[in-house]
Each structure stands twice: as C-alpha cells, then as structure tokens.
Design a protein around this nucleic acid. Structure first.
Lengths: 244, 244
DNA sequence: ATGTCCAAAATCGTATACGTTTCGAGCTTA
DNA sequence: TAAGCTCGAAACGTATACGATTTTGGACAT
C-alpha cells in the first residue's frame, strides 16, 4: 500500500531478500546471520550487506549478538499478544486525538468511503481477489485513522510496529480463508468497529473512539487464535516462552 | 544507568559525538548532516560515519532526506507532549501487567528500596549531588517497573522512547533547580505516585497501577512547563508547530 | 566421555578507491 | 527580476583490502 516498488539499490535487494528468508522461515529464529551469508546469497558486497543487517535489526527481525554478529530474533506468542495490545493502545490514542481535533470533512469522507467499500467486500467475501482487497482497504482504514490524528509521534511508533511481521492490523487475516464461519464473525465485528470508530470521531466522542480502537486491535489476536486452531505453525513464532 | 562506558569503537565515538552536537544545539533542527562532516569532526572513516548516521536516524534524532543525506529532525512541543503521553500508555501497561503477574518478592523489595531512598532524597533536596542521585533513583524505579512487567515488547518500545532526548522519565527534571517551590511540589507528587504504583502492584490492583503509571508520566510535562516558564529555550525543540 | 586449550578459519571493524548521483553557484534568457 | 540551465564540486553507493577479533574444531588432559 505505502511502498510501491522499492529502490533497486543493492542495499534494498539485500533487505528485501533477507526479510523474505526470515519471514518464510528459511532462517529459523535463533539462527545466526553473518555478513558473508548475505554477500553470497544476494551477490552484493559487504557494505550493503552490513547495512541490511543493521536495518533489519532496527526493524526487530534480528538482534545483535553480545559479542558480534546478528541472529534471527525469536518472538513468542506472548510477544505477539502484547504487541497487538500495544498497537491497540496507540491506535486508541490516535482515535481519541482525532475525535478531539477537528478532522477535516474531506478526511472523514475518505474514511466513510473506505468503510462503505469494506461493507461491500465483507458482504460478498468469496474469491481470492476479495481477500487482497479486504487487506488493502483495512490497511487504508488504519492509515486514515493515523492521518486523522495528525500525530508524527504516533506515526513513528505505529510504523515501527507495522514493520514487525505481526504488527500490522492485517497480520493474520492474510493467512485465513475468509469464508470460514468463525473468521466471518470476526470480520463482521471488525467492520462494525470500523464504522463506530469513524462515527465517534465525527461526533467528537474521544473516550468512545479510544475504547473502540483499543478493542479493535484484538481482532488480530482472534485471527491468530483461529490460525492456531488450524495448527498451522507460523515460522517466526518460537513455541516455548520460558521464564519466571 | 544502563550503559557504563560504551565501546571505544570508531562508530561509537561518532554516534556519541554526533548525538552530543545535536542535543547541545550545535546542529540546529533542520540542519543537514553529511558524512564528510562526521568524518572530519571525529576523525573516523566514512564507514563508521555512515553507521553513526544510520543509527541516529533510527533513534529519531535524524531523518533521511528525500533524495539523499540526513538532517537533524525537528521536534515540536506537540511531539514532546504526545511522546510523554505515549510513554504513559506503555508504562501504564507495564504496571498493569506487573500487578496481574506475580512479581517476585525480591523485585518488589528492590522497588520498595528505591522508593525509600527517593523519600530520603526528596526530603533533603539541596545539593547538586542530590540532583544526580534523584535522577539515578528515578531511572532505577522506571527500570524496575519495566522489569516487573517482564515484557520484552514493552522493553523494546520504551527503550526506543528513552532514546529520544525527551523520552526519558527524567527528561526535564535534570535542567531544573530542585529547590524551586513549584518543582518541589511536582517532585513530591511524583514520589507519592511511585509509592502508590508499587503498592498497587503488590496488591494486584492492575487498573489502579495502570492509571497511576499513566498519570505519572505527565510529571515530565509539568517539568517542561516549568522550564518553559523560565523561558529557557531547549535547543532541539522547534518553536512553531504549523499545520491544520 | 567430558572439559580445556590453541591455532586455523571465519568474521568483523575500518579505511579507502572508483564511478554515479546530487547539489548549488553562476550564467543565460525571457 | 525571476525562472531555467549548465557544469564543477561535493556527497553518495558500492566494492574491496587489511589488520583485529571471534568462532570453531580438534588435540590433549582429566
């Protein structure tokens, strides 16, 4: 949605390629990732390889090892749920600020338009193309919500959340069949929340907008639960969350 | 508090040096920062200079320019207030999680110890050394709160906030004379909140802990207001926040 | 079998060279 | 005067070399 086709620089190729390897599970959580690996896998020199490693470390896909080098970061389900909750906190704040500010009629109109288009898609829900359209519109909604808050700080933070493989509002819907009954229920609820959020913002009901947006984030958790029920392992989630 | 003396690598020297130049205002918001500047200022080669620029961009002190290069990021007061609010959201979540979990008696003991030491410092409050001790203990408190939440995701997010010059719990106290009456009032309130937060966590009162920690973050905003009243300009805050 | 130690191999931090892109001062032109 | 144009200088992306550090695998002792 945001990024069309990225720069064709060596660094970008390395970043995109490496990110792919991590997300599709070729590189398992905990696996060490060294510069030479990038160099030979993507035929780039060490300088862009190093840049790519550094960037993916910021994004949270890698962690710097104590002594030197990087490894694929292991996220637990607990991390995923907490990330979803954190996104809810931030989007809730965005919704409240939007409600408290005067959102331009133009922007409100755009939000309404997206909500109406989503109504359509959710009402149909069958083909695969519908799936990608849902994802796109949903992204659009969250982007507009952020825009309505007119907050650079929230934009920064939410952009960082979205960089994580489970940080996007669409994180787990993409892997589900939207025809399944249980999925449909969540989709319909999510859509009602979308509508209510816009309404709250329009009428300046900050507290309600905040509560709605905060709760809305847990849709992602529900999708994840449905995915878990299907026993489809997600490559970048490490099972056992030991500790305390 | 966390980092003793950083690695003596060229990259670190460049990062530390450049960060200093930005925070003390030598490089004003909006100023362009190019690699050669780092190279000559700190006598490092282009590779660490580039790494330093990249790192400070993640931290939020620089932004990448559209075409190429970096510039010092301009933050407005609005950004600062919203960052404080966001920190409150996250620390509130940390406090609630801590209250809901069973925090080990050892950790609770440490928190109590810090609170008692803070009692002492706040009761005295005169010399300069007291000032640095307050800052240190306050940091300690927030570090322990995060530890009590046992949340990697919150740790990640709050670490990023703290990297901003206004993201630390101590952000503006450091520049105020702790003897001023108005400052003292806030200090005393902050300290009562510290105590109440620990108490709420101990008794498992999640909602109260969350509300307290969230409100507690606004102490930073009060310090900032007091600083503004003194008309002491803060180098890295850009005055006019235009828009909408 | 298990743990320790060491040297070879791998990897990393840094400097630097080369070709390409971006920037900006001065010039032209309307 | 203001807008556009040109071209040299500055900055950038990338490749690569060199010494320093870290990792690894196996010899040796326990």
């Amino acid at each position: 949605m945001t990024d069309s086709e990225e720069n064709q620089s060596q660094t970008m190729m390395a970043v995109l390629g490496l990110r792919g390897l991590i997300i599709d599970g070729t590189l398992a959580p905990g696996a060490r990732v060294a510069e030479p690996l990038i160099v030979e896998r993507f035929n780039v020199s060490r300088t862009p390889a190093r840049a790519a490693l550094s960037q993916l470390a910021e994004e949270g896909l890698l962690t710097r090892r104590k002594t030197s080098g990087y490894e694929v970061k292991a996220y637990t389900e607990k991390d995923v749920y907490q990330a979803i909750e954190m996104r809810g906190l931030l989007e809730g704040m965005a919704a409240r600020i939007a409600a408290e500010n005067d959102v331009s009629p133009g922007l409100l109109g755009k939000m309404n338009a997206v909500v109406e288009q989503l109504d359509d898609v959710v009402a149909r829900l069958s083909s695969d193309s519908e799936q990608t359209e849902y994802v796109h519109l949903n992204n659009q909604f969250h982007k507009l919500l952020l825009e309505a808050s007119d907050s650079d700080m929230l934009t920064m933070s939410l952009d960082r959340m979205r960089a994580l493989p489970f940080g996007s509002p669409n994180a787990f819907v993409e892997s589900l069949s939207l025809n399944h009954v249980a999925v449909k229920r969540v989709l319909i609820m999510a859509q009602e929340q979308h509508r209510a959020i816009v309404e709250s913002i329009r009428y300046g009901h900050g507290a309600r907008a905040e509560a709605l947006a905060r709760e809305h984030s847990f849709c992602a958790a529900r999708y994840l639960n449905l995915l878990r029920a299907k026993d489809e392992p997600i490559p970048w989630i490490a099972r056992p969350s030991k500790r305390a």
